[in-house]
Amino acid sequence: MIVPEESLAPYIERLASLRTRLGLPPKTEFKWNPSEGPLHKNWDALREARPQMLQDAQDLDIAAVVVICATDRMPDSWGKEKIQMEMLTYLYERVSMVLDNAGDSGILIADQPPGDRTDEKQWLGRALALTENGTQYIAPDPNRIVLPVLTARSDHLDLLQPADLVTAATTALIAGSEHAAPYRGLIKGLLAKNWLDGQGGTGLKLFPDADHSPHNLRNLFYWAFGETWYTKVSQFGSKLLPTTSGRTRPATDSGTPSRRTTCTRRRAAHEHRQHDSHVGRHPQGRTGDALLPDPADVRRGGRAVSHRRGHREVLRADLPDLAHHLGVDAAG
């Protein structure tokens, strides 16, 4: 979450008011699906708290950046540590770009990583390299992220709690969970945009997403949030996302695909040409015809979610750790 300085105290005050209204103890931690505490399985309170927290964030001009990795689509050579570092790099780059576009500075605070103090020290060491050396695309700038990345416990720092909510809800939407569908509009309104007015790749980064990859996840920007163009800021343009294929039915009311999509390279290119003939060229760039993967296959009712590779099922879509059960890691 990217919280403007003038919104820090007001948002904390709104969380305190929300706890009072729900009859919760003052230090209750808000999470997407708490495993303990006053909100554990308190579905009525959670259904009231979630949209209120998201709406309050929008009202106070708070933005979100979420990075999601489909770990079962990554090469075998990519271990857990390498994936986590790549996700942190993507997150750092996008927060830096949003701050740069606004001409602002910021402090980056992460939820305390799991494990002991040694694990946390190693994580902080890897994060320190980002602020000291930058990345391939972002030069180190002490006027943007002004301190090394810090960590804190989310139950001690209120502002980390909406980050948990947004990350979990976004992951659930990408996975096709109907439990997250009521929050689609609020999440989309929070995701940061680039200067080409696109959210895909900025407010929400999915990977793998390379143009040449057969496991490219970009079509999920359409299935989850209805985006039809993927903007490439570095190339000053956009690419058309595939929204239909020969065997795809229209999206369900929740916006998720009603059955598995099969999309060959030839059919995808053909449909791009057909779509161009109806809607014309995008004013900011030309269309693309990269092969994208099938979206998640979602059975109605949120009872099971599977991916094209490695069948993984979830007995309930509203689980405390969707990332673990779906083979998806997320940061935000």
Rank of each mutant, 00 (worst) to 15 (best):
L186D: 15
T170D: 02
L196V: 00
R218H: 00
W195I: 13
K188F: 14
N216H: 06
Q199D: 10
G200D: 00
P208A: 05
Y183F: 14
I187E: 08
L217R: 04
L204Y: 05
G176M: 10
H179A: 10
K205M: 07
S177H: 11
R184P: 15
Q199N: 01
D197P: 06
D197L: 05
A175I: 04
L206Y: 12
I174G: 04
G185D: 14
H212R: 13
T171Y: 07
A180K: 08
P214G: 08
P214T: 06
K193L: 09
I174C: 12
A192Y: 01
A180S: 14
A175M: 11
L173C: 00
A175Y: 10
L191A: 05
H212I: 12
L204C: 13
H212K: 13
N194C: 05
R218W: 01
L186V: 11
A210M: 00
P214F: 06
H179C: 08
H215T: 08
Q199F: 07
D211V: 00
K205W: 03
K188G: 11
P208K: 04
P214H: 07
L173H: 00
N216F: 01
H179K: 04
A181H: 13
D211T: 08
L204V: 09
S213P: 11
G201M: 03
P214R: 01
S213N: 14
I187W: 10
E178Q: 15
A210L: 09
H212Y: 15
E178A: 12
